[in-house]
Structures are given as C-alpha cells and as structure tokens.
Design a protein around this nucleic acid. Sequence first.
RNA 1: GGACGGAUAGCCAAGCGGUUAGGCAGUGGUCUGCAACACCAUAUAGGCGGGUUCGACUCCCGCUCCGUCCUCCA
Length: 460
Amino acid sequence: MTLRLFDTYEREVRPFVPLDNREVGIYACGPTVYNFVHIGNLRTYLFEDLLKRVLFANGYKVNHVINITDVGHLTSDADTGEDKMEVGARRTGMSAWELADFYTAAFQVDFTKLNILPPDIWCRATDHIEEQIAFIKDLEDKGYTYQTSDGIYFDSQKLDDYGHLARLDIEGLKAGARVDQGERRSVTDFALWKFSPQEEKRQMEWDSPWGRGFPGWHIECSAMSVKYLGDYFDIHCGGEDHIPIHHTNEIAQTEASRGTRLANFWLHGYFLQMENAKMAKASGEFVTLERLIEKGYTPLVYRYFCLTAHYRSQMSFSWENLNAARTALGRLYSAAWSWGEPGEASKIYLQRFTDCLNDDLNMPRALAILWELVKSDEPDPVKKATLLVWDEILALDIQAWRPDSLEIPEQVNELVRQREAARENQDWQGADKLREQIARLGFTLEDGRDGTRLKRSENV
RNA sequence: GGACGGAUAGCCAAGCGGUUAGGCAGUGGUCUGCAACACCAUAUAGGCGGGUUCGACUCCCGCUCCGUCCUCCA
C-alpha cells in the first residue's frame, strides 16, 4: 500500500505524491517562545515526528522546517492585546531576546528527550524581518492591504475562497462575532504589520516603509516557508487550533502574493484533553515534560502514550492513562530484552505494520499488530528483529533498554541479606517485615527461580 | 449565539453495512513460603430519539453533551 494522508484542505484521505520526487518539504508551525511548552504542544511535534519517520520508511528524503515565533504573537489572535513576548519578559525579568533564547533551548531539550528528530532548519521570526517586510510590500503592490491607525491589514474580501481550509462561513462569523473588530473592514481581516504604540517603547521593533513596528503573527510563516521551501511545497503541519485562523491566513497571504495555496497537504494534530482543566499556557497551570520526569516517568513513556491514539483524534490525558502506558511499555521492553539477539525480521508482520502506517499514520492499529507479534508463536529472534525495524518509527530505544542495573545503597543490600537469612530459616514474618522496610526505601523485591531481583519501585 | 469537528466497555483507544482490534485495570489460573514480577485464559461496548436496509456501532435526520475557532492555546 502506498502512503495515503488526510488533507484538511480537501477533507479526505488521498495518496501522497511528492511535488518533487526526490525530497518532501515539510513546514511545521513551531512554538511562541514566551514560556515552556506543555505536553499538549509536544503531542503535535510527536505526530510530526511520526509523519517524518513514515516518510523515511517510504524511501523519501525530507526537508523539515520549524519556525520559532519570537515576536508578534498577540495575547489575542484577533490582533488586539499585547505581544506575548513582551508580557513574558515582564513576568520573568528577562529581556524579550533572552526570553526567546531561553525557551527555545528548553523546547529543543524536550525534542531530544522524546527522540523527536530535529528539523533541517530552525528559523526565527526576528531573523527574517526583511523577508516579511518584502512579502507585505508585495501584497500592498498587488492591492490586498489597507492601513488603519494601528497597522497594515490584509483585505480578506479580495479573495474569492478565503477560509476554504476551515470551511468558514463568513456571514455566520459576522453574525456571531463577539469582539469589536476595531477599524478592520471585515472580521476575517488580519494584521500584517503593527505599529509600535506611541506611549510605550517596545523591546522588539523595526523600521518599515509604513513606520516603526513589528510584523503580524501570520506573515512570518508565509515569508519563511517561501524562503526555505518555495512558493508551493508538500506538507504544512500544525495543531488543530490553527485551521480557522493561522493557516487560513497563511494561505490567504501566499495565494494573494504567489497565486498558490502554499502547501499540497495540510495535516493537523488534535488536542490533548486534560482531565478537568484546560491545558492553555496562559492559564499558568500546565503540565510540562519536566513535570512528568519529576514524577518518575521516563520521557519515552509519554512518547508511547501518544502513539496509542490516532493523531487526528483528541486524546484524554490522565495520570491513570499515563500509568497504563508505562506498564505496557515496560512489558514490551522486558519481553524484547528476553528475546536475545535478533535474527531475520518477519516480512508479513513488517508489511502489515507498514500498511497501517501508510493508511494515514494509523499507529493505534499498528500497535495492535505489534502486540499480536509479541504474543505470537514466532521464534524469539524473529520477534526481536521485527521489533527493532519497527523501532526506527516508534523510536522507543528498544535496543538500548536494560533491566535495572541499579546502584543499590548499602543499607538496602544489608536488609536484603538479612531477609535472605530469615527466608532460609523459614522466618516468614521476619522476611515480610524486611521486605516492607526495603519497599519504604523505594525498592521492590522479585523472588525468582535464580535468586532475588531488586527493582526501583515505579520505574520503567 | 455562529461555523467546523467529535461521542465506542471501569479507563485509554482502532477498524468495520453482517465475521476477535489492541493496551491498562478487573476476574480466574500457573509460578511463589506468602507476595510481587512474568505468563495463560476471560466478562462487560458504541450518547439519546427517529429513519434507510434482509441486517446499523458503522449511512441519513433531529436532540443532548464535549472539543476547536470567533475570546489564551498546539
């Protein structure tokens, strides 16, 4: 089966054919670096990593670009409110520039921990101000812009099919509008360039043909994707929230300027739902990867957790569900370890797994096949070899896993020796008491045929 | 309120117009001094009300609830 992907623009699963058959261009919307990213953000990058690895498995080369939004993203997407970077600078005491560096680095650390392959190009909005100004100038020359007292705006009514990606009902939007649209001519118009406010000095601002200010949020993606991937490239990714505004506006800009709809495929990762709270960063309460690690989960447990749901379904996060993933992954690791050296992979299993992934990245179904293999009668070397091939996509570091080889405190070792003595004397009560003491020190005992094993409690 | 999506067993989560998804938990068993680990086996489904059909969890309509955007999101 050849690769098929769901395209939000056409709203259907269709065969993926690269525009240039040597290399697939992917642009993935990156974070606004005013705070740490949360595990919901990371779910989207895990989905994009899966996409990339499946493209590799299909023999394609990939040119992957991720942007870093370090200016211009306002606290309201309706082009009002403050720049998130300026707000973040005030909160932390760092300059907007330091803030961007700090959270960009933190974001890239999360990538490494989750085995997410880095993009070929990281690009920052503030490094591409000239390109953005040139793009806006081009839109102005072609008659798609107008000026208000606070900026240069895109005139969405000039396009016949504005909003097609999100199937927007413009009249409905107008009727249901809940916000003051200011001087904008239409609710769907958006800022290309915002003027610096007269009463305050911004940390991030630049001169432009229209006056001192900063670029709007959407223009960076159009300007940078053109620069690194060309006017029309293969795949544009992002979170589901980008469908109605951000991606809709990127398409409008590029369509107006270049006459293309920017990307051949639009893929969107769906949200992670929290048990009883919103995941939004602005709420201040959000779960980071670091928080998971503090609670004793290895990052790859979260990666496995995300693989159990299809990228186009919203997924419910809870600690109970994360525990389920930890248990399952632990069993997989330990089974794979017990199989020893790899032999030859099973062609049939490999094919079935690939078929699932080529069917719009259906990883949940692929995992069902994985568990079928684990429980099958295939010889251990076949199981091991097959699983290791799959791990190029799963990226769970299956080969590297070892049963706990722990540094055991002398205190614990002494208790274990005492318990062994008690067991030899059939002093079961004494042995059980010692087991409890050891448990309080964070270790679990497993009496096997060839002796007693120690495990750190709750550890994968 | 408007637009666009969704609702599957205790929890998470797939496919499918008729034939076992899978994982976790639970239960029974093997193992164990007892446990734990591991392994084997296994019950419970498809929001509500209509319709189409020989047959609907799957298609259509209405309602309810949830999510996304319009108000902070990936």
